[in-house]
Amino acid sequence: MDILNPVRQWLDQFEVQDSKIAHRIATLIPAQCPFERDITVLGHKIAHIPPLCKLNPLYEQLVGLRFRALCYLADVCGEDIGAYI
């Protein structure tokens, strides 16, 4: 049984209908995973930290929500979304 399934469904069905909420979503959810890093010492790679957001079980739903928020801002509100990309 997937205990996160109700949250996944809610995020997938969430309709962005307010520009303030769309701006907040676009600001809070990053455009790309900020955590992937290579650790180097004296020019030698000693470790690699994978993109941790890929381990987030809600990652796909959050990326979809951000996309819908940006589409709302661009298509419905006619705003320039260049600052969020």
Rank of each mutant, 00 (worst) to 15 (best):
L65P: 02
A47V: 06
P50E: 14
L52K: 05
H23L: 01
Q32Y: 07
E15S: 09
A26D: 08
P57A: 11
Q32F: 05
L65W: 01
E60H: 10
Y72C: 02
I39C: 02
N5Y: 12
H44Y: 14
P57W: 11
R68V: 12
L65C: 02
L55D: 13
L28G: 03
P34C: 10
R24L: 15
C77H: 01
F14E: 05
I81Q: 03
F35M: 13
I49K: 10
D80M: 14
D75S: 08
D18G: 03
T27I: 04
L65I: 00
P50A: 14
E79D: 15
I85T: 12
L11Y: 03
I21C: 01
I49L: 15
P6I: 00
R37W: 00
G82W: 06
R8N: 04
P6E: 04
H48C: 02
N5F: 08
Q9T: 12
R8L: 00
S19A: 07
L58P: 11
V76C: 09
H48D: 00
P50T: 09
I49F: 04
E15D: 10
A47D: 10
I29T: 09
E36Q: 14
Y72W: 10
E60I: 14
L42H: 04
Q9I: 13
L4V: 00
F35R: 13
L28K: 05
Q9D: 11
K20G: 01
E15Y: 06
L58A: 12
M1H: 04
T27F: 11
I21Q: 07
V41L: 15
I81M: 01
P30L: 06
I3R: 08
C33W: 06
H23T: 00
D80A: 15
P30A: 02
V7E: 06
A22N: 08
H48M: 01
A47M: 10
E60T: 15
L65N: 01
P30M: 02
D12Q: 10
L62R: 14
Y84E: 02
I29D: 02
V41H: 10
K54N: 15
L28Q: 09
F67H: 13
C77S: 02
W10V: 06
A69G: 07
I81C: 05
I25Q: 02
L4E: 02
E79T: 05
D18N: 11
H23F: 03
V76Q: 11
H23C: 00
I85Y: 07
P34I: 06
Q9A: 07
I49Y: 05
Q32K: 09
V16I: 08
I21L: 06
A74Q: 10
E36P: 05
K54T: 13
E79N: 12
P30N: 03
D38G: 09
Q32T: 07
I46L: 13
L62N: 10
K20I: 02
L70E: 04
V63F: 01
R24F: 11
Y72M: 03
A31D: 14
P34E: 05
